[in-house]
Design a protein around this nucleic acid. Structure first.
Lengths: 300, 300
DNA sequence: CATGGTGTCTTTTATGATAAAAATCACCGG
DNA sequence: CCGGTGATTTTTATCATAAAAGACACCATG
């Protein structure tokens, strides 16, 4: 078989569900309506209807088809175990690379990895190609891929790049007009920081998400597709590492919240240079955390 | 046939060349040596040697094989017309997108494009995936690709991003120690600018390359893989447009050279703020040129 | 005769099969 | 033990093809 018939099987079962809702002897909705309802093309619907006719569930031809009997559970087609989705692949792959400390320069084996991650080799290939931008992966001259690895160098350069982008964002932020929605958003997120600070003892785990949203807000004022693209990579990596370095997590997070608040305060009084200086300090801390989490992990 | 046998054919002909250099009756070098010499695996060498044995050019088995007769021209295997290389595909594709003003949002047809560009569909697929970073291309939910198009928005955002990166580079540049090689390189490129200025009437076409090298030098002091990655995209796009907007080319180029020289001068006296201001002005001009070239092209 | 439908055909994409190439292992003669 | 060959096992790039989507023509019916 070339393409998988997953779509056909899903539509088959979905149509059975629809048929269960109408009385025996009633006519079918039109093919176009069914296709729209299930979100597939008419070709699929026609194939399913034909099969149901052969199975004795439907009868008639043309625009005159009726339900012969109520479909039973055993009429359903088993779905073959499906491959995982793209975002899950991304998560699993990063988890594998970052967590298991794969040495830099490792040659990747497409087929083996594809099996390991439960995806068709083709999908993995495309995924790796799309990951080229992140600088984690390199194409070898004659076929194959090499993992450049998540090294300390990489972390440093990532942090530096992040700093360049965010300092620029802060510069833009302080120049925004008074009625720009970002100011309101800033007030809201400030309150969220204060709120989390109150219940830090229990909920310090919530900081990771708040941190992501804070930095996203800062960068959101720069409407630039390239910045946004990189922001995704950056937040991905930082977010992942946040989840592992459990040492001092509660205190680190509390400190980070306070740093965020000083930055917010500086922004609110439109003090660009103060905001930049504080952001610089915060990002430096962040970088150190990232590096130390890598070192700790490497020793483990 | 699954994989092409190009490699086999090339090795076949290359081995014929080697055999032409040794006397009839002499023994062959070892398979390992031949494989190393031709840069292929032993499997290929063995396949070629076997074919040459069948053709009566070699005889013997094991480590005892000799040349029977001098190979003739007609022993060579014809190379089937090969597909184009990756960088050529890149050039052709960009040329197509940028020159023919493909409307934004166009759905790309893999097979058709693959034929058009003389590459296997698979290669095009991977190429498109790798181009995801540039923001020119988007993957549609259920298969297929969409061309986001090279719009004015795109050009503006690209220019802005470029400015952020290069301003940062200039900041780093002025802080470099006296003995850093970049200073020497700066002097060299300054002389090249002066030189080109002297012969601008005839050689103004040379500016495109010089411009590329100038900006590359500026950015080279930031050793950051992400910056470098983006630099590639940026120089690609700008370089391409340079080639088309022929209006006022000579005067534009002369003006740009002078702008470069003012930036170089500011750098050389370590005046960061002056250098930044002048770079800003230069990039603004550059952006305008890019936009006007797009407008001109759009009207055409 | 316009509208909503079906039958048929063409185009396009995703995937499994497969051959070429690379890498690995086992063995041999000196 | 070393440099080599023979045989075997991965591994990757390409191709053929089925599934899905889309386009077109025609038909029945109010």
């Amino acid at each position: 078989m070339a393409r998988t018939d997953t779509r056909f099987r899903q539509s088959h079962n979905a149509l059975l569900d629809i048929l269960s809702g109408i009385p025996v002897g009633a006519g079918l909705p039109s093919e176009v309506q069914l296709a729209a309802k299930l979100g597939v093309s008419r070709t699929v619907i026609r194939a399913v209807v034909q099969k149901l006719g052969a199975d004795g569930i439907l009868q008639g031809t043309g625009r005159d088809k009726q339900l012969v009997r109520v479909p039973k559970v055993r009429d359903r087609l088993p779905l073959r175990e499906e491959y995982i989705r793209r975002d899950e692949l991304e998560a699993r792959f990063l988890d594998w690379v970052l967590r298991f400390d794969v040495p830099a320069g490792t040659a990747l084996n497409i087929t083996q990895l594809a099996r390991q991650f439960m995806v068709p080799p083709h999908a993995l290939q495309e995924f790796l190609a799309s990951l080229g931008q992140s600088g984690l992966i390199e194409r070898r001259p004659r076929g194959g891929w090499r993992l450049l690895g998540f090294t300390a160098d990489y972390a440093v350069e990532l942090s530096e790049f992040r700093q360049v982008l965010e300092l620029n964002a802060v510069r833009v932020f302080t120049a925004l007009p008074e009625d720009h929605p970002a100011w309101a958003a800033l007030t809201v997120i400030r309150d969220e920081h204060l709120d989390l600070l109150d219940r830090i003892d229990h909920d310090f785990h919530d900081f990771s998400r708040l941190d992501g949203r804070f930095h996203a807000l800062i960068n959101s004022v720069v409407s630039n597709r390239f910045v946004a693209e990189f922001q995704k990579v950056i937040s991905l990596i930082f977010h992942y590492h946040y989840q592992w370095d459990k040492t001092m997590e509660r205190y680190r997070n509390e400190a980070a919240i306070r740093e965020h608040l000083t930055i917010i305060a500086a922004l609110q009084v439109r003090d660009a240079s103060a905001a930049k200086a504080r952001l610089r300090a915060h990002l430096a801390t962040s970088k150190e955390t990232l590096l130390s989490s890598m070192r700790g992990h490497h020793l483990a």
